[in-house]
Nucleic acid binder design. Structure first.
Lengths: 130, 130
DNA sequence: CCTTGCCTTGACGCTGACGACAAGGTTTAG
DNA sequence: CTAAACCTTGTCGTCAGCGTCAAGGCAAGG
């Protein structure tokens, strides 16, 4: 399988696949003319990468999952290193959820405050709300 | 007040203040020698900008709030344009909260799945958990 | 032979909010 | 006279995950 086919089957671009390779996540063979040749297993790997990136992982976070897949596991998350990353990410998400909730609360407070002061002076505002 | 003093009082850098000016958020006068001269009101403006950026706003979002302050209002969020931005941001935050919650759920699922398959083959793993 | 359609490496662009420098002018204190 | 401590504009670097040319090689069909 050449890079174009893999890109299409994985729903990405060739640029993306070369980028992953440059970062050590995908290792194709090379044919005599220098073309990248991928085997079927790499499709799984690329799909795993895409799924994790979509969820908010970085390329560095993805490495253990790829290694886990390459080690012959059916899914990339059953290895200890992957679990560590999963735990860390879950903690990050929880933390971010907390801060985002606080932000949301502040926004609501500001909104109610703003609406309570609707009648105050505003720039170029002459119409009054019914 | 010169740029250094404002930066210190606002808890930012001079670079930041020049950046805000380049983006039309702060308008200092100039003294004879070309130095930027800020009046007291600009401190409030800069503080408003910082507060909003901390909460996740972009510089473009901040503009209506600054205009509102300049229009003589005690706080920057009481003007209609500011309220629009607040509403939009609240919606964005809500949306992001939803997706983040879904991600969190997926992470938890993956974790339990991974732990359930602890005994499977993993790269360089010889010790068994007690 | 020529075109089409793959593939290769290399290098710049993008987004946002600045940090970090460079090279120089001004003012004040000693 | 000079050093210190301000200030000015300008430009490049940062982080991430690519998009987007550019310039060229290789293979197959007409």
């Amino acid at each position: 399988m050449l890079i174009g086919e893999l890109a299409e089957r994985a729903g990405t671009s060739t640029r993306t696949l070369r980028y992953y390779e440059a970062h050590g996540l995908v290792r194709p063979q090379r044919s005599a003319n220098g073309y990248r040749v991928y085997d079927e297993a790499e499709l799984r790997v690329v799909q795993e990468i895409r799924a994790l990136l979509d969820v908010g992982f970085g390329l560095d976070d993805v490495r253990p999952f790829v290694a886990c897949l390459r080690a012959g596991n059916a899914s990339g998350d059953v290895c200890p290193d992957s679990v560590l990353v999963l735990r860390r990410k879950l903690a990050e998400v929880d933390d971010y959820l907390g801060r985002l909730t606080a932000v949301r609360q502040q926004l609501r407070t500001q909104l109610t405050h703003a609406i309570a002061h609707r009648e105050e002076t505003c720039p170029r505002r002459r119409q009054s709300a019914p």
